[in-house]
């Protein structure tokens, strides 16, 4: 059993997909500030082809739209591309899985159905999520699927009983990232996942330093920043460690260290890296950069919709470039 849906269709040549995504890239919103500070940002959005988003006025619509776009890209891919991008889509579908588990826990059947609609999860996983009565019943089935990838996914039900859904999500995400970088990957995908691990480790380090936690943070292995460097930074007990590592990783560090600025610096560093890959590397880099840009757009749209009644300056700070 696999986490992702099996596609029998052969898909299209890589050049075809790259040409299509280049055409679609033209539709990305670029001037977010002009949109946010316009007299009516939602009306401006509606004028740029986002009528559905505005009509629904729901923050999760951009994420559903993102899921549909990812599904479209996955279905267009040929089998060689699907093999290369499988870790990426697996990682993305973990988010769908977590949302579905949260809706299951909250008995929100409507949203559960919606989130599974454009999902790339395998039919068996979707059926499990839809039909089984509660999270403790679903988790052993999810574990049976994930354990094929790595035995470290075992014990999800126990983890849920001890630490709740948050602990399960953290465990699955971390195990999936570590497992992915250890498996054979395309060099660009390897670079992407190593950077994701770095981002996760730096966020852990920052939280550890900010809230002066006693326990040492658990760092994931496989990133570009070695574990001893992270451990040493965690021991320094100043905010400098995270800032230095962000500068080392992305080339620039935020002037003021806040949770938002750290997260933004890391995400924007990844955006710059992928843009560079898209310019200099093969089609894989271009496709990955497109998928990432779709994520950034969904996140920005979600922030605008969530902050429609908030101070625009605050909303502007949430926007990723």
């Amino acid at each position: 059993m696999e986490l992702l849906r099996k596609i029998e269709d052969g898909g299209y040549p890589t050049e075809y997909l790259v040409a299509r995504i280049q055409g679609r890239s033209a539709a990305f919103l670029r001037d977010w500030d002009a949109l946010i500070f316009s007299p009516d940002p939602l009306a401006s959005l509606a004028a740029t082809g986002y009528r559905n988003i505005i009509a629904a006025r729901a923050e999760d619509i951009p994420w559903q739209r993102l899921a549909r776009e990812y599904e479209w890209v996955y279905l267009q891919m040929n089998s060689a591309l699907r093999r290369i991008f499988k870790p990426f889509f697996t990682h993305q579908e973990l988010r769908t899985l977590f949302l579905a588990l949260r809706y299951k826990r909250g008995n929100d059947e409507k949203r559960l159905q919606e989130v599974l609609l454009a999902s790339l999860l395998a039919k068996t996983v979707k059926t499990t999520l839809r039909d089984l009565p509660d999270v403790p019943a679903v988790l052993p089935e999810v574990e049976r699927v994930l354990i094929v990838m790595s035995p470290r996914f075992s014990g999800l039900e126990d983890l849920f009983l001890r630490g709740g859904l948050g602990a399960v999500e953290q465990h699955i995400t971390d195990t999936c990232l570590e497992h992915t970088v250890r498996s054979p990957l395309h060099p660009i995908m390897r670079g992407f996942f190593r950077r994701l691990i770095d981002m996760r480790n730096i966020m852990s380090l920052y939280k550890h330093q900010r809230w002066t936690m006693k326990d040492r943070p658990l760092f994931l292995r496989g990133g570009t920043i070695e574990e001893p460097v992270l451990t040493q930074a965690a021991g320094s007990r100043t905010g400098e460690g995270a800032s230095d590592l962000i500068a080392r990783l992305t080339g620039t560090a935020p002037e003021i260290i806040t949770p938002t600025s750290v997260e933004h610096a890391l995400i924007e560093g990844m955006t710059r890296l992928l843009k560079k890959e898209a310019r200099t590397a093969s089609e894989i880099g271009r496709i990955l950069q497109y998928l990432w840009q779709c994520f950034i757009e969904a996140r920005n749209l979600s922030a605008i919709l969530a902050g429609r009644d908030m101070d625009r300056e605050l909303v502007s700070q949430e926007i990723l470039s």
Partner: peptide
């Protein structure tokens, strides 16, 4: 032509 054709078909589908 195989490369240009595939890319061209993709470009035509969008534009």
């Amino acid at each position: 032509q195989s490369k240009i054709g595939a890319a061209g078909a993709g470009a035509l589908a969008e534009k």
